[in-house]
Amino acid sequence: MESETNSTEDWASRAWNLLSKLRDQSPLVQCITNFVSMDLMANTLLSAGASPAMIHSIEEIPDFTPHARSLCINVGTLSPDWLPAMKAAAELASQFGKPWVLDPVAAGASGFRLNACLELVCMKPTVIRGNGSEIIALSKASLGDSKGVDSFHESMDAVEAAKSLAKASGAIVAVSVVGAYNGLPMMQKITATGCAVTALIAAFVAVDPLHALEATASALSILGIAGELGMDMAKGPASLRMHLIDSLYGLDQAVRLSRTKITSL
């Protein structure tokens, strides 16, 4: 039986290979996201080596989406005007065999939001990345306790809900099979870090769509490592944001291999 150390080393090698492919290929990642997260998502993708495109107008979807390598849909500032574009882009991504990732922000906060997320889940995302409360709301298809975009539940509390959602949707759900334990609490004090890691997942699945699980776990771990490195230089959330982006840009193989914390559940 493989030891935990060897398993971690294998995950670290996979993650580094994926990051190297991302930097070499610079895939075009379309992001239909919220007003709060656009800047950090775009800069996260750029610093990792991808090419972001924040295209959300439904008039542009037919021309643009087929040319993107992957799609990221984030419902943070959801409105009735944006939902048709999200659905149209998801449909085209699936039609052209492009992976797409759903971030069901605050899924259980309102009936409109929950129903929109459930409709998107039915459109077969490759990956669903959410916090504990969001995953539980989707799994139960019901409204839940909400603090806006914050979670009442720890990620590990949602493991069974994530497994159920993954089975029902056919998607990779971040905590359903593996745990990526890199990161630090202060990252939760920077708005849109969760959105940023979802965009990074979309970039990773763009370069290896046949191994979406490995891509998802690797992206989660890599942004967490960048946060850990950034915290060594930061004085608080504002400076951590800056150093997070710099650390992601400068991440090298030695650090990647020594800091990885991914285990099978």
Rank of each mutant, 00 (worst) to 15 (best):
E60K: 08
I61H: 01
D63Y: 06
T65R: 09
P66A: 01
H67P: 02
C72V: 03
N74K: 10
N74G: 04
V75R: 09
V75A: 13
L78V: 09
S79E: 01
L83M: 14
L83R: 08
P84H: 13
P84I: 12
A85E: 13
K87R: 07
K87T: 12
A88T: 03
A88R: 11
A93L: 08
A93I: 02
S94W: 08
F96T: 11
F96S: 11
F96P: 05
G97H: 06
L102A: 11
D103K: 07
P104R: 03
A107F: 01
A107K: 04
G108H: 13
L114F: 08
N115S: 15
E119G: 14
E119M: 12
V121W: 06
M123Q: 15
P125T: 15
V127F: 00
R129G: 04
R129H: 10
G130H: 06
N131W: 07
N131S: 12
G132K: 01
S133K: 08
S133V: 03
I136A: 12
A137C: 03
A137H: 05
D145C: 09
K147T: 08
G148L: 07
H153T: 09
S155N: 09
S155W: 08
M156F: 01
V159N: 07
A162S: 09
K163G: 11
A166W: 05
K167Q: 09
S169E: 04
G170Q: 04
V173N: 10
V173D: 06
V173P: 08
A174V: 13
V175Q: 00
V175A: 03
S176I: 05
V178P: 00
G179T: 12
A180T: 14
Y181N: 14
G183S: 07
M186K: 14
Q188L: 15
K189N: 13
T191Q: 14
T193M: 05
G194W: 00
C195R: 12
C195M: 14
